[in-house]
Design a protein around this nucleic acid. Structure first.
Lengths: 148, 148
DNA sequence: TTACAACAATTGTATATACAAATGTATGAT
DNA sequence: ATCATACATTTGTATATACAATTGTTGTAA
């Protein structure tokens, strides 16, 4: 990925700004490839994310604030995101009996099945994105990102 | 930045997935800090981006497709983005006389003045984001990001 | 027990983004 | 000159996201 070529500029960009632009471009690419991989499955990246969190719950229901905490990119309307997943039949939601302010959200069998198919597509996307990286590269990259 | 702490998971994430999640989290942080820095100036990050491109044109007008090419995150409605900047008085737009399909977009004096103020805020945001990085860190990070 | 603050989710509204279709203009072949 | 095509932007529509206000519920201090 050549930053200058992508944003079509000849003049050289200061190192600090270049780094931040670089990160934005990489994130755009990740996003685009993952979104494309999920498109045939009819879910957004955020929705996929929520399904994965629910699967990780292993039967224990999650409430909205739990989902919100665990999502990679926190978005300010988990209610409506869950609405969409309900429409697709991938999750269900019911009022929490012990505390009626909360809701209990579970992944359905149909949701688990769909998620398994999405896993393949996402695995491919991941490999496509990281094909140029060695394990050492990834370790170094993670260490550097920790400085943020 | 501790990935596991942020997304509140105990189990360890495979290196490849962790890297991609890490990048998303970092990008979210960059976005949030920059958006916050621009908020008092009443422009979005994308709008700021366009103003900067126009300043870089040094008087030569830009048309929409040029802007689109040079934007960091290409978005699919530059027309409306420019509309907003016109409303604020930061740019003007006129039909290109030599090719009436195109438009010529220029930054106004008012836009340049506003942009200068934004530069300070953005400089601060940049320093805040990168305070833990040495020049060598940034060089390594850029080299790794090039592998995408 | 009542009144009040804190909590959890939902709803309303504005803005942002993605994508396709439509508009108006220029170019080239016949 | 006419027609078909390509080009550049705009418009329409659906969906996504941000943020504030609202609803309903719970816990607690007086």
């Amino acid at each position: 990925m050549n930053v200058e070529k992508i944003i079509k500029t000849e003049k050289q960009i200061p190192l600090a700004s270049r780094t931040l632009i670089h990160l934005s471009l990489v994130e755009s690419k990740i996003n685009e490839i993952m979104t494309t991989a999920l498109k045939p499955h009819g879910v957004s990246l955020q929705q996929f994310n929520v399904l994965r969190i629910l699967r990780g719950q292993k039967g224990r229901p999650a409430n909205l604030s739990t989902l919100n905490e665990r999502m990679v990119t926190k978005m300010s309307n988990t209610t409506r995101l869950v609405d969409k997943l309900i429409l697709k039949g991938y999750v269900d939601r019911m009022v929490c009996p012990s505390n009626r302010r909360k809701v209990e959200i579970n992944i359905t069998v149909q949701g688990e099945t769909a998620l398994t198919e999405m896993d393949f597509a996402m695995k491919e996307a991941e490999e496509k994105l990281l094909k140029n990286f060695t394990v050492e590269d990834l370790t170094t990259l993670n260490a550097l990102l920790d400085k943020f």
